[in-house]
C-alpha cells in the first residue's frame, strides 16, 4: 500500500448557518495525482482550500475535523500557518503572476522566507522553471514582466513559483480552466512529470483531464464525498449510481 502523506477525517465547514461540507474523509497518497471532481458548488474547491488553510481569511467560517500532514495537525494550536503553506503550495484558477519580473515572481516565496543568497536564488529559479517546463521559453527574458507572457505561460510561471519553495504537496484549483486546450495539455504534461517529486491534488471541471492525469479521483456532490477510488474504477466501474450519472454527463 502507498504511503499516505495527507489525511483528513470528518471535515465539516460552515459559513454562518450554512454547512458547505458535511464530513469528508479523504486521504492522499504520496507521489500521486488526485483529482477532485463534481458539479459546481459541490464543495471541492472549498475542501481544497481547507488543506492549506486559505479559508482562514474568510469571515464567519467554521472548520472542524482532523487534518494531518504526515503526523502533524494542520489546524493544531502550535501550527504556524505561514510555515504550513511552505509545505503545501497552491496554484489558482486564474493565472496570477505578480506584476514584476519572471525572476522576482519565482523567487518570491524564497525571499519572503529570508533567502538572500544570489547563487541559491538563481539555482532555484532555474530548477523551478525547468520543473514547470517553461525554462526554454523564458530563460533569455527572466527580467521581463511576467504579465507580458501568454496565459498558459503565466500559469506555468505560477506553478514554478509554487515549486520554488519546494513544497511536499501541490494544490491546484482548476489550473487549466482559464486556458486554451493547447496550454491545458502542456500543463497536464507538466503535472505528470511533477508527480515523481510532489504529491498533487487538483480540482478540475474537465472529466477527460481527470481521466488523463489522475491516479485517484474523488467525486464530491453537495458537500459530501460520494466516492473516492482509483481513477480507473471511478470512470469504468463506479460503485455509486450518482457517480455513474455524473461521469456519463447525466447532470452536473
Amino acid at each position: 500500500m502507498e504511503k499516505q502523506i495527507l489525511t483528513t477525517k470528518n471535515v465539516k465547514l460552515s459559513y454562518g448557518d450554512f454547512e458547505a461540507l458535511h464530513g469528508i474523509d479523504l486521504a492522499f497518497n504520496e507521489h500521486e495525482i488526485t483529482a477532485l471532481i463534481g458539479p459546481s458548488g459541490c464543495g471541492k474547491s472549498t475542501y481544497l482550500r481547507c488543506l492549506n488553510r486559505m479559508n482562514d481569511q474568510i469571515d464567519g467560517v467554521n472548520i472542524s475535523g482532523e487534518f494531518k500532514l504526515h503526523d502533524t495537525d494542520i489546524y493544531g494550536e502550535n501550527t504556524d500557518v505561514v510555515e504550513l503553506r511552505k509545505h503545501i503550495g497552491m496554484v489558482f484558477q486564474q493565472p496570477n503572476p505578480f506584476p514584476m519580473s519572471i525572476y522576482d515572481n519565482v523567487v518570491f516565496g524564497l525571499r519572503v522566507a529570508g533567502v538572500r543568497d544570489k547563487a541559491k536564488l538563481d539555482e532555484a529559479v532555474q530548477t523551478a522553471l525547468k520543473q514547470a517546463a517553461i525554462w526554454d521559453e523564458v530563460k533569455d527574458k527572466l527580467d521581463q514582466n511576467a504579465l507580458a507572457l501568454s496565459g498558459g505561460q503565466q500559469q506555468r510561471i505560477c506553478i514554478a513559483r509554487a515549486l520554488a519553495v519546494s513544497p511536499d504537496v501541490l494544490l491546484l484549483d482548476e489550473p487549466t480552466s482559464a486556458l486554451d486546450p493547447h496550454s491545458s495539455r502542456q500543463i497536464e504534461a507538466t503535472l505528470l512529470q511533477l508527480k515523481e517529486q510532489y504529491t498533487i491534488i487538483t480540482v478540475t471541471h474537465n472529466l477527460q483531464q481527470a481521466a488523463r492525469i489522475a491516479d485517484r479521483t474523488a467525486f464530491f456532490l453537495q458537500g459530501d464525498l460520494i466516492e473516492a477510488a482509483s481513477t480507473k474504477q471511478i470512470f469504468m466501474n463506479p460503485e455509486h449510481e450518482q457517480t455513474r450519472d455524473f461521469i456519463t454527463g447525466r447532470f452536473g
Partner: peptide
C-alpha cells in the same frame, strides 16, 4: 487583484509581507 494576495499568502508570506 485579490488573487495577488491569495497567491502571496499561499507562498508562505505573512500578511505584512
Amino acid at each position: 487583484p485579490k488573487d495577488y494576495r491569495s497567491a502571496s499568502l499561499a507562498l508562505g508570506a505573512t500578511r505584512w509581507q
